[in-house]
Design a protein around this nucleic acid. Sequence first.
DNA 1: AGTTTTTTGTTATTTTTTTCACAATAAAAT
DNA 2: ATTTTATTGTGAAAAAAATAACAAAAAACT
Lengths: 210, 210
Amino acid sequence: MTINKNCIIRLSRYKNALYRLKNLGFVKVFSDNLADAVGVLPSQVRKDFSLFGLTGNRRGGYNIDELIESLGNILGKDKVHEVIVVGAGNIGTALMNYKGFEQEGINLVACFDIDPAKQKKASGMPVFPLEELKDFVKQRSVRIGIIAVPDIAAQQVLDIMISAGIKGILNFAPIRLRGPEDLVVNNINVELELENVIYFVNALRKTRGK
Amino acid sequence: MTINKNCIIRLSRYKNALYRLKNLGFVKVFSDNLADAVGVLPSQVRKDFSLFGLTGNRRGGYNIDELIESLGNILGKDKVHEVIVVGAGNIGTALMNYKGFEQEGINLVACFDIDPAKQKKASGMPVFPLEELKDFVKQRSVRIGIIAVPDIAAQQVLDIMISAGIKGILNFAPIRLRGPEDLVVNNINVELELENVIYFVNALRKTRGK
DNA sequence: AGTTTTTTGTTATTTTTTTCACAATAAAAT
DNA sequence: ATTTTATTGTGAAAAAAATAACAAAAAACT
Ligand SMILES: NC(=O)c1ccc[n+]([C@@H]2O[C@H](COP(=O)([O-])OP(=O)(O)OC[C@H]3O[C@@H](n4cnc5c(N)ncnc54)[C@H](O)[C@@H]3O)[C@@H](O)[C@H]2O)c1
Ligand SMILES: NC(=O)c1ccc[n+]([C@@H]2O[C@H](COP(=O)([O-])OP(=O)(O)OC[C@H]3O[C@@H](n4cnc5c(N)ncnc54)[C@H](O)[C@@H]3O)[C@@H](O)[C@H]2O)c1
């Protein structure tokens, strides 16, 4: 059983689909419902579940509440996770304003920036000077951080975060970050994804005529 | 030769790494330099290049300028691509303010929103009423669009975009979009990525003791 | 009660992707 | 001019992931 990023991503998607099905009033679900909701094959759903010992009833499908609970446990939804943001620019501000994290047990607790003009402690989420990051993270044992600073600053910010005890990073800077082997880094590169969409639109136009 | 999303993503990464190397004054590059910059094995780099007929010189590596040009052609960097944004909220505004797209030949030309309070034609990028999307897109033959509206509105917005002629989507709404087979959709799901980071941080803590 | 139908859970198969391995070759060194 | 060294380009091998296949089991039906 190899822990595979795509597999965990699928678990999150199953969980989100289950929330929706539950809201729609469903009580049980079959692997092909989930497959359809997420865009994979039913055998993939059952394979993923099997990997984590998630079981249903033959001919009876899966109980949605139980499945949500089990997936929640696997994905760490049983506790609230505190997360810091570094960089109070366009992206950092968008994240701080976003209301959707709370329901997922993700709690953005503070932001840090080098620009004094961005710093504010009054209303909304506090934005502290970068120098205060280390103490804050250590004191509150924050493990997860988001990097939303320009690419040239990203590695240096990461190094500070690592020294403070951060173990997992969501990185928006379009640069490959270097860190110890046990550091978890997921990258979101908007330009790359757009460029990729453009490539495939062109590629399809070429192959499918017109 | 199967066109594979990850492979194209790697081509973009190689291209970005080459920009940096060029700025640093390098003229030629070896597969292991690129591999290191991007975080893959040298054989992967050569395999990718081989798939697209990109060649270098045995023992001489690759000429950076030539490689940038070739990758640029493959990735459609020879022309400027017009892109529209739908949803002038947190994410939409962050994207509109972002200066980095221009250098990549990506031109965000307009935004559309249903909320009259968000609409403005004066300074900066124009934000038009949603009803004007179809005409705008048809008239300018825009092919690519970004969805930055709440999840409940995303599918309905997509349908409008498709009817207007949009062929490729970058979607920020945490929902699976349905469209015709030849529609290209890349999703950016920030919560999912964060949840994933959290999972692996916890998983590592469990396996590696402490 | 027995038969049919449906859906799981898991093993086997296939496909895809990555990695290896090495001959071909060009530059550098002798 | 010959030898050594370094690096590509690609076909073969290995690894990983996805898909299919199907026996086991449980519900529904007769
Ligand atoms: N905004 C977008 O839509 C977008 C799109 C694609 C990629 N990105 C990437 O996301 C990242 C953030 O983009 P943005 O548009 O929010 O940038 P931004 O310039 O709006 O904000 C960056 C913030 O980081 C702060 N900062 C700079 N150096 C710092 C440091 N060493 N420590 C702490 N704070 C520091 C700045 O003061 C600023 O507030 C960038 O790497 C960018 O390339 C953004
Ligand atoms: N902001 C974030 O950091 C963040 C994080 C994770 C996911 N997301 C996702 O990104 C999307 C956008 O998030 P946001 O924070 O920018 O939302 P937002 O609420 O700030 O903005 C949404 C905008 O879309 C507009 N809108 C609503 N329905 C519309 C319609 N039918 N047609 C056109 N415009 C419409 C609204 O008027 C608003 O301006 C959402 O799907 C959200 O779940 C955002």
